[in-house]
Amino acid sequence: MLVIFLRTTLVYLLIIWMMRLMGKRQLGELQPSELVSTILISNLASISIEEPELPLLSSVLPVVLIASFELVLSFVCLKSRKIARLISGRPIIIIKNGIIDQQALRILRFTIDDVLEALRAKDIFDPAEVTCAIVETNGSVSVYRSWEADMPSRSDLGLQFSHPQRPMMPFVSDGEVLEKNLFWCKKNPDWLKQVLSQNRVGLSDVFLLMGNDTEEYTLTKKSQHG
């Protein structure tokens, strides 16, 4: 039993390390090679946990190998567009100027229901509103709406320039100061001290402090219970 405990712990830590090594791309929408490596790694990892007869290396080595291949391959794809296209394919346009490209759908083995579903996910109920829709290499659909159907921007409406330029960012998270966010919003530790003293709280009492490049901020204190 202790052996299973140790093996599981080792494999678990290894997988976390491998996923961290492979980076955020593995956690977001996956390219084909990334999907393959994620599936393989998860299957291989379970082998040595389920079968104590097998040596740990028979699971660990393939996992490390696959993660390394994935990293090297992504580096090579970065340097060579040809290889990137070979591995991941290329984006395909399925709607042009409101007209659905049926040939492209046949190539992709997309049904019209798949297209309509993808459009509805973008709050589009009429393909005629779409100037361009592209199926990306990771299977997601990117849509560019026609001028008539698109939402107007502030500049379209002739609205005056107004603050804030920066979004609301966390300045303090669970008592820890996030200095990069502070400086990005043109604030400094003195401003933070001022806010804390105005609200009569110490840094360790702050659960969340959000702010932007204006004077507005939101402070949430830590609750007493839990």
Binding site: L57, L61, S68, L71
Partner: peptide, 21 residues
């Protein structure tokens, strides 16, 4: 840096494979 680590890991797994053989 990740790529360097990956290359080293590849070399290590290859070395272990050759040694085991």
């Amino acid at each position: 840096k990740r790529t360097t680590v990956a290359v080293w890991l590849l070399i290590l797994t290859l070395a272990i494979g050759i040694f085991s053989s």
